[in-house]
Write a protein that binds this DNA or RNA. Structure first.
Lengths: 333, 333
DNA sequence: TTTAAAAATGAATACGTAACCATTTATCCG
DNA sequence: CGGATAAATGGTTACGTATTCATTTTTAAA
């Protein structure tokens, strides 16, 4: 590997001058500048970012800890985050977290001394939050928040759940099922609370078993689907906590010959790009802001990295209904 | 930032011993081991991966240069690659490449001294290939290959195009349109050649304008759709070079009230997970191997990194038809 | 010209770790 | 108990860069 010393020797200058050519070229005379540049070209010299990081204590790298990409929400946020970082000249270390690997993921992130961390994988009472704060590395949570209510960018989850339920109630549905993920996650908790609040405000009561808290994996969702199919009084509408859940469920129902929305209405939350596809046309709740949570979060992260914004970031974006074709008036037979 | 020297001082040992505790703990006595471990815990010491990289000349990082995640093919390969790398204890720098940023992306990759590069973004005559070879860094191409035919993992693209066309011909379609991306990309070139070969073998000739070479972006595909709708003799079947293209086109056609497959058959290539969704049910061509190209490629990359495999990797996976519900017999009206 | 100031360059050092070599301490066997 | 050998530990250096400080060269002013 050719180093700046090699370039220096080849150009007949000191290593310091080579460094200056790369970083402050205006402080070096034209002729020597040319000599060094020529040497750099001849030797195909590329400065070592790692060595630079070591002395500058800046890595120009951020870590992204994301949910799985088969959830379109995360493929959208991941795209926005990486592209933003790249445009800033930063690299992005991407990690996908699950129940088994979380410790390794966080260790890996901390060992690599990144300049910022952006994550959507935290639990309400996650102990990793304290470690993040202690580390002194700028970090931001998107989509989810910690119970400490610090450094997050989210949608108004209660409002989202409320609007979703209200939409179904407006359509005359009373037999509604909520299908969401664990309540240890702020997103699911907030959305479910909004859902329940809407039912209460409309004086609709549903039995406990109509609130399904499940894992968001394919298998668990399939089990949920099967259980609902077996139940005596089948729901006329489903309120899914995320578009990803809604889209999965649609797959199961349509495969079973159940028509949506004629036989069953379904609504999601997130307004992912895929939900607009003519084959899905999923009614959903989403942000007005077209840029998405990933973009908003990474933008804030870079404000923190550049020290422009030292305050605690608490952003909650308002949502609205995007009515499409998976929900319709309940028919009284 | 607390360093190994701080730990050493706190534990009353040398920095060397601290290093040994972390790397070869069996070579240090139990009592001193404990002393050092305690000091590590007390000071919350985390070794600096960058400094380690510098001295060991290994970064435990790979670079992934991928196509966009809104293409489900890439969200699947990206997932497989990152998870594989993480399981090996490696980090992954992810970059999304487009026509404007390719130079910056490659510069960024070379500056960061990664241990391996995996990319699906290369053109047949891409000059970056030589730079990759010169760099001495293990690298592998997936999905696409370079004209030099070195270090790639792909499907048999000619076979894929051939099977797709043959399927439509078997169904009685003669008025078939090919919609694919630029021929500077091996994937599109091979698939189109296979498509044309199948037509020839079946003694079917189609006019030039039935071979549409376009950009794979949404806007260009929409223009293609509009042009086809305006054409005097509309096709009865479309052969899309990728599932992503097929799924986009389905969106346009269904929105325009055209029924698939009754009014128009459509077939894709790649067999992405999403194509199986009951709302799409896209007939497509794909690998038998469930693990996907991303997995196969990253597996080979790590063989190269670990020096197990120094040979030139040339892998071409056979494909087959996955018949679903977007293709049907052509009705002679 | 002389001299002060500014510009240009170089030498030495630090960043945090692993590796190499040297030294000390413990263990074993006769 | 003594010497040989193995185990354990420490001192020093290298990795490749940016930075600090010192020195030389150039420029501008007197």
């Amino acid at each position: 590997m050719v180093s700046s010393k090699d370039v220096a020797k080849h150009a007949g200058v000191s290593q310091t001058t080579v460094s200056r050519v790369l970083n402050t070229p205006e402080r070096v005379k034209k002729p020597t500048l040319k000599k060094v540049m020529d040497a750099i070209d001849e030797l195909n010299y590329i400065p070592d970012g790692n060595a630079r990081s070591l002395v500058q204590r800046k890595t120009r790298t951020i870590a992204l800890i994301s949910g799985p990409l088969h959830n379109p929400f995360f493929s959208e946020t991941t795209t926005a985050i990486i592209n933003y970082a790249n445009a800033e000249g930063f690299r992005t270390n991407v990690h996908f977290i699950n129940d088994e690997n979380s410790e390794e993921v966080y260790n890996s992130v901390f060992e690599n001394k990144v300049d910022g961390i952006i994550l959507s994988s935290i639990y309400l009472d996650d102990p990793i939050f304290n470690k993040l704060e202690k580390s002194g590395i700028p970090f931001i949570l998107f989509n989810r928040k910690h119970q400490s209510e610090k450094n997050y960018v989210e949608i108004d989850n209660r409002q989202a759940g409320y609007l979703a339920a209200a939409h179904l109630l407006d359509k005359g549905h009373k037999n509604i099922v909520w299908i969401g993920g664990p309540l240890t996650i702020s997103t699911f908790k907030g959305r479910m609370e909004g859902f329940i609040q809407a039912l209460e405000d409309h004086q609709v009561t549903i039995p406990k078993e109509r609130i399904v808290i499940t894992d968001t994996k394919r298998e668990e969702l399939y089990d949920t689907f099967l259980a609902l199919q077996k139940s005596t009084e089948k729901p006329t509408a489903i309120c899914a906590a995320t578009d990803a859940i809604a889209i999965r469920l649609m797959d199961f129902y349509i495969s079973a010959g159940i028509r949506i929305p004629e036989d069953l209405s379904i609504i999601g939350i997130d307004n992912v790009e895929l939900s607009r596809h003519a084959s899905l046309n999923l009614t959903t709740i989403g942000m007005e802001d077209e840029r998405g949570l990933g973009f908003l979060a990474v933008e804030k992260l870079f404000e923190m990295i550049y020290q422009k914004n030292k305050s605690c970031i608490q952003i909650q974006k308002s949502v609205r209904l995007f009515e499409r074709n998976t929900t319709m008036d309940h028919k009284f037979i």
